[in-house]
Design a protein around this nucleic acid. Structure first.
Lengths: 191, 191
DNA sequence: CATATTTTGTACCTCCAGGTCAAGAAAAGG
DNA sequence: CCTTTTCTTGACCTGGAGGTACAAAATATG
């Protein structure tokens, strides 16, 4: 019973995600959120409790969306290296158009360093998922002979992960498409 | 003429650098700076103009220090790969003890995305310097046969750079020494 | 030593972040 | 249709961010 919500909380989290992604946690004000979500401040705090709580929801939503997207991109048919290249080149194009970088990377930089254990936990969880997805692809490529089976898949996937994170940092800093593509080339040459 | 300064502006910039490095730009307050520098607020604003101007000085100072440090680490004798490994392992140890990550990376994430062109310029400049240092090392290794001379040194050094940036992101997020070392292993295996 | 010039410390100011609250609106149950 | 419950709005509140103003202090110059 009671009055039904005038907005979709799930959609609101996505809207909030967008703002936090662009501006970061600290630089996002309640006012920004009120405008972006199109609801009153009271509703906002009634529904989500605090800016920080809403941020956590938004970050988790981002993580889940990204993880699903990566798994889908890596699951397409064809040689593993080609899939990987397509995924990375897609990322480059997206970031050239809109250099928001990766919300998890941005969050790690802003709230990492021991200042926010819960958020850091979510961040590391996303890293673990991504690493696992790469590891699966690497092992598949090793079975098919595309990648030398003698290499340690853990080390290789960790390296891919860190290079991916670095790519997002470069993108966020406004590096050119050429610079970003060179990273992709350099990475794929090593596999 | 006039009253002489009661503090060393250069040392003050270094103190400020320390605070900005730990807390980030947005989360650092004038009060934090007053305490860290040990001077009054009036002196602070008289000497540096604004929080943002002081931050730019601190960031440039960081960039110069780091660039010098990297060049020194990479300039030691012995095989290039060993130098690289020593440099990266040193970085890992430092970050395990104090996970502040890299101030430039943190800044890229916080103020990138087109929000602060001057700062982004400094950030990209640091990336360019780092890439150049790696490129020099790569080319040296190619001449000595340590790295396949057929590889594009631009792509290789870009890849090393991005992996390094990713490493700092991982460190800032509080990843374990083992995870970080795996990145180093994965990276060096590919060279 | 008087004066012009620069630095210093502190009080003060304005604005807005982050959040609370009271009063009303919209549903379900009796 | 009256009560109970939940949601909504917008006014309101507190603290602190970021910076300015001003008077006092310290120095070089004539």
């Amino acid at each position: 019973m009671g009055r039904p919500k005038q907005f979709d909380p799930d959609a609101a989290v996505v809207q909030a995600m967008d703002v936090f992604w662009r501006k970061g946690y600290g630089a996002t004000t309640p006012q920004d959120l009120v405008v972006a979500l199109g609801i009153g401040k009271g509703s906002l705090y009634h529904a989500f409790g605090s800016k920080h709580a809403l941020f956590e929801k938004a970050l988790e939503r981002y993580r889940d969306d990204q993880a699903a997207g990566l798994i889908e991109l890596l699951g397409s048919p064809g040689p593993v290296k080609e899939r990987l290249r397509r995924a990375l080149e897609f990322l480059v194009e997206v970031n050239v158009v809109d250099p928001r970088g990766c919300m998890v990377v941005n969050t790690a930089a802003e709230l990492g360093g021991g200042g926010d254990p819960e958020v850091s936990e979510t961040v590391r969880n996303q890293f673990a998922r991504t690493r696992a997805a790469f590891r699966g692809a690497v092992e598949e490529a090793q079975r098919s002979g595309e990648i030398d089976p003698g290499r340690d898949p853990g080390a290789v996937s960790s390296m891919i992960l860190s290079s991916l994170l670095g790519l997002q940092v470069l993108a966020r800093a406004g590096e050119s498409r050429e610079q970003l593509n060179q990273v992709v080339d350099g990475l794929l040459d090593t596999l």
